[in-house]
Design a binder for these strands. Structure first.
Lengths: 243, 243, 243, 243
DNA sequence: GATGAATGAGTGTTCATTCAT
DNA sequence: AATGAATGAACACTCATTCAT
């Protein structure tokens, strides 16, 4: 890592994807690096291990990405891109506010639960004080649409008398993300302290339900019964809002 | 060739505290290690750096703690102990439910915000899959009292008609911890994505208020106005529930 | 923290020999390691010293042999291979029994005397309780032919009435090896105790003669005069039977 | 070892033995050191391990023996002394030549077989090029009587027509020692190569018999039948001639 | 694109030895 | 005589990176 600065080749090429190289060594490399960086962190990850896992020669990493940092950034951008792509396919604006919110929370939870390497990657990026996210325009550009969407949903819900009216969208977004993310990210210490395995499917579902319940419980307008907010807490798979 | 890590010394002595040996190198060592492990993780932390910061000879680390892992475990246990000690001094059971809850949330948030190294340590411990927390009886033993206390507070609040009655204490605890912890732990990526500095004092206070609001909003019994739950959101510094 | 030794490279290549890479760093490495291990033992040998002597980068040792143990094993196998190779070129079976035996003893003595590092290596390997010899199939496989040859020679000699008939080949081999090996291996304490330098050429020759005399003296069939066994005790350089 | 030269306390005291200290910490220390040095060699032996095994404080070693080398020398001298003491109690001169020789060989073999740590110590001392034996007057002084005794026995045997007359006592001594010592010292590689466990009691006895047979076979005067030399090859426990 | 060999700067750990009491 | 704490100098091994082809 940053022992001697080298110039990364890629750039435009990186975005362009495969240029007809072997089967797809670049893809394999990114995948292997993603797993290794998630599991070990930037510093902990070993270039040799990544190369071995991707079944490529170590030098190729330097050829493609300049250095370890370059590879890490590529992995991070790739991971964000993937999510944004999936988000693009969702149409939350078409749903009613409560239903949209339910979907949003459920999807966020599910995505975190099913993509622990991604959660790990974000945790690691915070340990690095977001050094790479800050560097990447690509990543930052894609976060505003989701906030706009959330703001709109909250507004529609408040107008319909289904949500309370004093909700700050940014704080709300952070809270919702927190309720999902924290559980997945801290599952090991939680499991150790409470002496149960929070990764068991039943407990995951229990948590999922609780999170939806928790968020909708907060969103209730003053004087509203919670009962209404309770039906069909299990709707799944829509859209994730990564941190 | 394999080298076998030796066993660490002390134990009883460790708990007994300083024996009057001047500037107390052992204390300095733990403090320096805490900071280094929090900043760099177990693997990333450098034994040399810790020794230099503690102004002791590197070998002394091995003399006192056996190896790097031993030092890490000691730091972890020390960190948990410190909090438990502080908890012991608080008397949440003496307060009314709503007030107690307010204090609890406020303190949790404040503790996380003021002890980022501790938050980091826990994040890192999760990256290690809680390998060390699981190993430590000391740490696990001290988690149950706090859960009992929380359970009791929720029960009292529900009985008084101030809290909803269907709250699972464990899930609730995790959620409350999440709302505080996540903000501190992920402040860098959040700041980068939303392009503002979430560490600024005003934003910290705004978050603090939001978290209390969010939790109490959820706790409202059905049909209750949120207004009541809003007064005096600023009570500070009581008790933290670390993960 | 535990570090796991990596696996060594090559294998086939190792046997294949140099690939034309100039001064052949691998060869130099083995030679340097042989000397260092012989002089200092496995534990006492210093990787840095070996690297310096071989004029290569220390890391290369790990690249080629995995770890210090791997290098030691390679040296051991290389040393045995060399001898076996030399043995292959000798044709003891073509000689008359007494002459063959004389050659065999002389060569064993000479080889030990001229390859003290090899003697040292074996001594060291015994200190290690033959941990590496036991591990190596290569080494074990090549020991049986020489035993067969010895058995055959003894049989031929007995049939011709030149050797006694009750000789156990294994015990005999050990005894012959002992008479040569011990002198070389313990030359320093022997020299100190008897206050003379047993490494002086005349003393070496005296010993050589004595050993041949001793063995042939034992081999005499009952009732035979020793005189016959005495002629031409000086034949040299044929075949060594290392331990 | 020789990192900073320190002055050993002992000297006269060392020879004088205990001066009324604890139970016998000095004895325990020597015994523990003997085992550790035999097993690991001078360099390989660990001062901490010795201290732990002897159940004394590490510093005491430095108090008593100055440094590691001093302790090693003390162990070596102690080991030699012990044997000389035992030798003193034997009265080989009283036996008939053949019987005396038989006893001598048997005892040498038995002593080596039963005191492998001593064998190891000597091997190690040779690796050190007899640096310490050479330094020690005590050790050298005690080797001549045994050579005189051997010379006398050979002379008596030759005069009686029971031994050949051309035997060099020094070479003979070395050969006899070799036949015993080598087997014990190289038992591990021998066992590995011949794929049997040469430490098994039956094989030890077989070897013992062979060695006596071998030596007496050599000693036969010209024209003598071996049969005579064969009776009662099993007499035991008399006197050892260490190297 | 792709590869094997090579390298310098660490990195955790060990060890004999000394200090202060 | 005895002890716990402290230290400097190694030491085996690792890792990101570059060279030559």
């Amino acid at each position: 890592m940053s022992r001697k600065p080298a110039k990364a080749r890629s750039g435009a090429k990186r975005a362009a994807g495969k240029t007809g190289e072997g089967p797809d060594s670049r893809e394999r490399l990114l995948r292997a690096a993603h797993l290794e960086f998630a599991a070990e962190g930037l510093r902990g990850a070993r270039v040799d291990v990544i190369a071995r896992r991707a079944k490529i020669n170590k030098q190729l990493i330097y050829y493609h990405f300049g250095d370890k940092d370059g590879l890490y950034l590529a992995v991070l951008e790739h991971a964000y891109s993937e999510i944004r792509q999936k988000e693009h396919d969702l149409h939350l604006a078409d749903d009613e506010p409560v239903e949209a919110m339910r979907k949003l929370i459920g999807f966020t939870f599910d995505y975190d639960a099913e993509h622990r390497e991604f959660v790990r990657l974000l945790i690691n990026e915070n340990i690095l004080e977001a050094r790479f996210v800050r560097k990447s325009k690509l990543i930052k550009q894609t976060s505003s649409p989701m906030l706009d969407l959330l703001r709109d949903t909250l507004k529609r819900g408040a107008a319909a008398g289904e949500f309370r009216g004093d909700v700050d969208p940014v704080q709300f977004y952070i809270s919702m993300a927190a309720l999902c993310f924290f559980y997945v990210g801290n599952v090991h210490t939680l499991s150790a302290l409470f002496e149960r395995d929070f990764n068991r499917p039943e407990l995951l579902q229990e948590r999922r339900k609780h999170v939806i319940d928790f968020v909708l419980g907060y969103l209730r307008p003053e004087g509203t019964t919670a009962a209404k907010a309770k039906r069909s807490a299990g709707t799944r798979s829509m859209r994730a809002l990564p941190v």
